[in-house]
Design a binder for these strands. Sequence first.
DNA 1: CAGCAAAATCGTAATAATACGATATTATCT
DNA 2: AGATAATATCGTATTATTACGATTTTGCTG
Lengths: 110, 110
Amino acid sequence: MGATKAEEFTLRDNRIARYAKALGHPARVAILRLLAERQACMCGDIVEELPIAQSTVSQHLGELKAAGLIQGEIDGPRVCYCINEKEWTSALTVLNEFFKLPKEIAAKCC
Amino acid sequence: MGATKAEEFTLRDNRIARYAKALGHPARVAILRLLAERQACMCGDIVEELPIAQSTVSQHLGELKAAGLIQGEIDGPRVCYCINEKEWTSALTVLNEFFKLPKEIAAKCC
DNA sequence: CAGCAAAATCGTAATAATACGATATTATCT
DNA sequence: AGATAATATCGTATTATTACGATTTTGCTG
C-alpha cells in the first residue's frame, strides 16, 4: 500500500483498518459472499465463479486468512475454506461500534 | 491498488469494497473518529492530532470525500469537514447486511 | 512408485497507495 | 492591494497491491 505509518496509530484503529482493508477489494467480498452463501465451504470452485486466475484467487484467500476472516482445512487433495465465525463476529462488532459513533451526537455543523 | 478488475464484479460487491477500502487505513479511521467524536466538525485540527503531514491529511480527506463518507464546507479561510450522515448510514447498512450473511447458515464444515 | 488434480508459491510487470516538501489557492483582515 | 493563515494540489520517491503464467508442493489414486 505504499509507505505506511500504521504503527503510529492506535491499536483499535489499526484493527478496524485491518478488517476493512480485507474487505477493500471486490474479489475478496465476492469470495466471502460465496463462502457465506453456500452451505458447504468452498475450495477451488471459487476460481470457476470469479473472473480471475487461480493464482490470484489463492492470493486473495491468503489475505483473507491473514486478516483472520477465513480459515482453511485440508480435505483430500483440496483445501476447504470457510468463514472464521469468531473473527467474523469480532469484525462485525468492531465495525458496528465504530459506525454507530455519530449516532450519539446531536449537533451537526455542515 | 495495482492492476484491478473491479468492473468484472457486481455493483453490490464493488460498493461494499469501496466503503471498506475507505476505512482500510488507520489514518482514515482516526480522522472519521475525530469527526464523529467531536461535537463540531473538524478542519485543520486533524493535522495536530495525527502523526502525519498536512498534505497527507488533506489527501486522506480527499479519499474519504470521494468515497462519500464525509463532506466539507468552506467556513472562512478554513474548511469544515463532517461525516455525511446519509452515506454513513448507507455504509453501515450495506456492511451490516453483508456481515450478517453467515448467521443465517446452520451448517459448518470446518 | 508414477500420474493426476488441486492449491500454493515464485517471479515479475503493471499500477495504486502512502507520505512528504514545496508550491499554489483561497478567504480573511489590515 | 498586501499580508496572513488554512487547505489543496503538484511532483516525486518509496512501498504495497493486483494479476498472471509458470512452477512447485501436496495428497490421493491406480
